[in-house]
């Protein structure tokens, strides 16, 4: 079991390495995509700077907490899109019968499919996350927990995308729903929790689990609470389990295709 997991990890890393090699073919494009992603994200903080010059807090968050929120939102997005880019167009992979190549390999189909490409601009998102967390004031403990939350949040993003994409096994053109929800989770992630109330807040801890990607981690990074940390861990394990369950349940309905396609 452990050997199999090690081998799977080796292959996933090898896939990422090869995809990175491709992204680096044109160095100028590679570097520019990262730099411009950082600049693009930075423009949003300027909006908050203006808001905080008018108000003491926004949605119950101080400016420092907004920095942490953006660090988490950007960093988790970066982790998810850099290592598991294909999770966000898995619907198309399923619909167009592109899973065939992964099914005939003696490895985990889902992980093989997810790690077969990277989004190099997501490096900019990850870097931006680390820049902001340093700006918000850093300690070793905060740095370690921030890094853990980035990984867990990235996993939640990916698992959520896989669950949505798995509907493609049953419903045609469900990629539209998947795209809508994936973009929803990305946007809501950047708004302070306090601006939402009632049922919306329940939704943000269940159907659109932004709460476990950003809100609880912001609380933990502000004042450490072991129980909140455990909740995030448990939820991450739950949603990953659900993603695998949905994908493999749907795989039995996979109908492949005879399209002329190539693996790029």
């Amino acid at each position: 079991m452990l050997t199999a997991a090690k081998r799977q990890f080796k292959i996933s890393m090898l896939s990422t390495k090869y995809a990175l090699m491709r992204a680096m073919v044109n160095k100028a494009t590679f570097v520019m995509s990262i730099v411009f992603m950082i600049l693009n994200n930075a423009t949003f903080i300027i909006q908050y700077l203006i808001l905080f010059s008018l108000k003491e807090d926004v949605g119950g968050y101080t400016f420092n907490q907004v920095l942490m929120l953006w660090a988490l939102a950007s960093g988790t997005f970066g982790v998810a899109h850099f290592f598991f880019k294909k999770a966000f167009n898995l619907s198309e992979t399923i619909t167009n019968g592109k899973l065939d190549a992964y099914i005939v390999q003696p490895k985990n189909i889902l992980l093989q499919a997810l790690t077969s490409d990277i989004d190099s601009s997501a490096i900019g998102d990850m870097l931006y996350g680390f820049i902001l967390i340093f700006v918000s004031g850093i300690t070793i403990k905060k740095f370690i927990f921030f890094t853990i939350f980035l990984i867990l949040g990235g996993f939640i993003h990916v698992a959520f995308a896989v669950i949505l994409a798995s509907f493609s096994f049953w419903i045609s053109r469900s990629d539209i729903i998947a795209d809508t929800f994936n973009s929803m989770i990305t946007h809501i992630n950047t708004y302070p929790e306090g601006i939402f109330g009632g049922i919306t807040r329940v939704v943000l801890y269940t159907l659109i689990p932004v709460g476990f990607i950003s809100y609880v981690p912001v609380q933990v990074l502000t004042s450490f609470n072991i129980m909140s940390f455990i909740y995030v861990l448990l939820f991450t394990a739950f949603i990953i389990g659900l993603a695998f369950f949905m994908f493999y349940k749907g795989l039995k309905k996979y109908s492949s295709s005879n399209l002329m396609i190539s693996k790029i």
Partner: peptide
């Protein structure tokens, strides 16, 4: 999968780059 090989003429399995 360890014991069989597959080639689909219509589908590329190699990494193009």
């Amino acid at each position: 999968a360890y014991e069989i090989g597959t080639v689909f003429g219509q589908k590329e399995q190699l990494w193009m780059h």
